[in-house]
Computed example of a mutant assay.
Amino acid sequence: MKKLLNTLYITRQESYLHKERETIVVKNGDQKLGQFPALTIGNILCFGQVTVSPFLMGYCAEQGIGLVFYTEYGKFLARVQGRQSGNVLLRRAQYRWADDAEQSLSVARLMVAAKIANSRAVLLREVRNHGGNEALTAAGTHLNASLRNAKIAESTAQLMGVEGDAAATYFSVFNELLRGSGFVFGGRIKRPPTDPVNAMLSLTYSLITQECNSALQGVGLDPMVGFLHQDRPGRASLALDLLEEFRASWADRFVLTLINRKQIKLQDFVTEASGAVRLTEDARKSLLVAYQERKQDEMMHPYLEEKIPLGLLPHCQAMLLARHIRGDTEFYPPFLVK
């Protein structure tokens, strides 16, 4: 099994990263902030005004170390990518699948069904752990019907409609999952997020999307060509497809834990003149530390029946998807929370 490597999160403004022998050095002015063996690093995520030497960029590309740039507030900007790895025959098979409506739909159905089932599991877990709640129970029933509709969708457009309806139902009761924290969630707002909960969700989704991007590249698939999300210049459609399986079970539960355990509080956010809400620098660091710790938690993979760190989940699903596209398995087993 692949080993989970570390991720460097560079949040100090005006930091400079360069390569020194087989290590990665982080400096701020004349001050050395850290020096890390390159062999232990899987990804480097840079937030805001962070500079990376051309030699380190080239090294990261050659070694398959993900190098991703965000705005200071967590909006994705760019990703440095080296040569494509893996078998060209696998990617050609992927492109043929993407051009075949029925084959694309066969995988997309499973991904959407997994998203809906995992969303339902989050709601029912709350009912089970904290007592009956009519709104959550009713939403769970609706999601069960959406799950059946996803399995029989006859086109990608129809499937997207089912997914959109399920997401609306799920987020309509998301506020019920926030317990005594002072946070209020009125609905999913993406660009830009206009409340603290949406700000945390957007940042976490962005982080996991890059995990999916790296995982797909690692097994030789093209992250830009998906089966559910349509091709669009600059959009990693297959990474977004894979993300659907992890939204509720990983991202949403992670955000809910930070809020309900009061690790992140309302005073940890600021509102810009545009109305966009963002985490303060210290709060963003706290979220990233908690996110990295969460990736280390072990779980039993429901299909592989093997204990893995949560951070390897995108790699496992990308590997299973590649096997299916190659024809090694009859079906793609999406990630389902037990």
Score class of each variant (00 low, 15 high):
106 S>Y: 01
147 L>R: 07
229 H>R: 03
332 Y>K: 06
93 A>V: 04
28 N>R: 03
140 G>K: 05
129 N>V: 12
215 A>R: 03
289 V>E: 14
36 F>W: 12
253 R>A: 08
305 E>D: 11
123 L>V: 05
18 H>L: 06
277 V>G: 00
29 G>Y: 11
233 P>R: 00
161 G>S: 11
130 H>V: 06
110 L>Q: 14
57 M>H: 08
305 E>I: 07
172 S>P: 03
257 T>M: 11
60 C>W: 08
62 E>Q: 13
13 Q>D: 14
139 A>T: 08
332 Y>Q: 05
296 Q>D: 05
205 Y>A: 03
119 S>L: 07
19 K>A: 10
69 F>A: 07
40 T>I: 08
284 R>I: 07
81 Q>H: 09
165 D>R: 15
15 S>Q: 04
68 V>Q: 04
112 V>H: 12
28 N>F: 09
329 T>L: 01
93 A>Y: 10
317 Q>N: 12
224 M>S: 14
334 P>S: 06
51 T>Q: 10
286 S>Q: 13
330 E>T: 12
52 V>W: 00
330 E>S: 08
139 A>N: 09
254 F>P: 02
246 F>N: 06
224 M>D: 14
274 S>C: 12
251 A>F: 03
112 V>Q: 09
48 G>T: 08
248 A>T: 07
220 G>V: 04
221 L>Q: 04
158 Q>W: 05
115 K>C: 12
149 N>I: 00
168 A>Q: 13
89 L>N: 10
172 S>V: 06
335 F>S: 10
41 I>Y: 02
145 A>R: 13
68 V>N: 00
338 K>T: 10
170 Y>W: 09
49 Q>G: 09
266 L>Q: 07
127 V>H: 00
66 G>L: 02
278 R>P: 01
108 A>H: 01
40 T>W: 05
241 D>S: 07
41 I>T: 08
164 G>D: 14
39 L>C: 12
73 Y>K: 11
50 V>F: 00
247 R>P: 05
248 A>C: 03
166 A>G: 04
327 G>Y: 10
79 R>H: 08
18 H>E: 02
37 P>R: 09
30 D>H: 15
61 A>P: 02
192 P>V: 07
216 L>M: 06
241 D>V: 08
314 P>G: 05
282 D>A: 15
53 S>I: 02
223 P>I: 11
143 L>M: 14
322 A>V: 00
334 P>L: 11
319 M>V: 03
60 C>T: 09
172 S>F: 04
22 E>S: 12
330 E>M: 00
327 G>Q: 03
213 N>G: 07
107 V>E: 02
75 K>H: 06
32 K>F: 02
252 D>P: 07
289 V>G: 04
297 D>E: 14
65 I>T: 13
169 T>C: 09
14 E>Y: 15
276 A>T: 12
331 F>R: 11
126 E>I: 03
261 R>D: 11
55 F>A: 04
260 N>G: 06
232 R>M: 11
134 E>T: 15
218 G>F: 01
52 V>T: 01
245 E>D: 13
132 G>K: 15
291 Y>W: 13
252 D>R: 00
298 E>M: 12
188 R>K: 02
273 A>V: 15
226 G>A: 15
168 A>T: 15
48 G>H: 07
137 T>R: 14
203 L>C: 09
113 A>N: 13
48 G>D: 04
227 F>I: 04
48 G>V: 08
23 T>P: 02
117 A>S: 14
